[in-house]
């Protein structure tokens, strides 16, 4: 199986504290990989590094075998990566459909100046909104959506860019069961389309149900990895994370 992301000895400091500490891991293509760990274990920092939000201090990162010395956020489109955020980050004072259109249209400023979204863009955006169940809300402002709907819109933006590698940072946090089911289904569909999903999540039932592979982090280090049912039964994991 092809490895889409690989890190070797990855280190990230914050004021002398190791947020990510000598982390070596690999993520396989077309799989749902869960990342769990106590608060402050470095899960979100890892996603921030892999999506170009933070620079890393030491180590190596490979995307599909190619070494990336520096990951720049705007290169995500080139490498086919997309992400959601732990704290929702939408374009709040823009309409729902504009939140999708902005990720569909031209990136080059000069060409964007002369581009107006056409029928094609509208249809793509509406298809995405239908998929995440927000079609009826397309004319509303993003800030006026409920919390769960905002999470769906964030996922909608990822679907719109047709990312191959998708980082989802706690997409189920604070959602009611029906919304959880809807997002679970979207993630399963992504897997069926051979997309690679990296899921940071605290809900162990969801992890067991969805993930093919599980990575457990603690204090920035890799504590354990493997099949979810096996990893979640390891003594070290139980002690560090589940407190059992």
């Amino acid at each position: 199986m092809k490895q889409v992301i690989e890190t070797k000895g990855l280190i990230k400091f914050f004021d002398g504290i190791h947020a990510v500490d000598n982390l070596s891991l690999s993520i396989e293509e077309g799989k749902i990989t869960g990342i769990v760990g106590p608060n402050g274990s470095g899960k979100t920092t890892l996603i921030n590094i892999l999506s170009g939000f933070y620079n890393y201090d030491k180590g190596e990162i490979f995307f599909s075998g190619a070494k990336r010395k520096k990951i720049l956020p705007w290169e995500n489109k080139i490498y086919g990566t997309g992400r959601t955020f732990q704290q929702i980050r939408l374009f709040n004072q823009m309409k729902v459909i504009d939140n999708i259109l902005v990720v569909l249209t031209e990136r080059n400023p000069f060409f964007a100046l002369f581009e107006r979204h056409g029928e094609y863009h509208i249809k793509c955006a509406e298809d995405v909104l239908k998929k995440v169940g927000l079609y009826e809300k397309r004319g509303s402002y993003a800030k006026d959506l409920s919390y769960g709907q905002q999470k769906l819109l964030e996922i909608g933006r990822i679907l719109a860019i047709k990312a191959d590698i998708i980082f989802l940072d706690e997409p189920f946090a604070g959602l009611f069961p029906e919304m959880i089911k809807r997002i679970e289904n979207i993630i399963r569909e992504l897997k069926n389309e051979n997309k690679t999903v990296i899921l940071v999540e605290h809900n162990m039932n969801i992890i067991r149900e969805l993930c093919d592979h599980l990575i457990v982090m603690d204090a920035g280090k890799l504590l354990a990895e493997g099949r979810p049912e096996k990893v979640l039964s390891e003594r070290a994991v139980l002690e560090a994370y589940l407190g059992e």
């Binding site: 170009g52 080139i78 997309g82 939408l90 990136r107």
Partner: peptide, 11 residues
Amino acid sequence: EDEEALKIFGY
């Protein structure tokens, strides 16, 4: 609205 979030989408 959020320039950091926009960067993620290739801008």
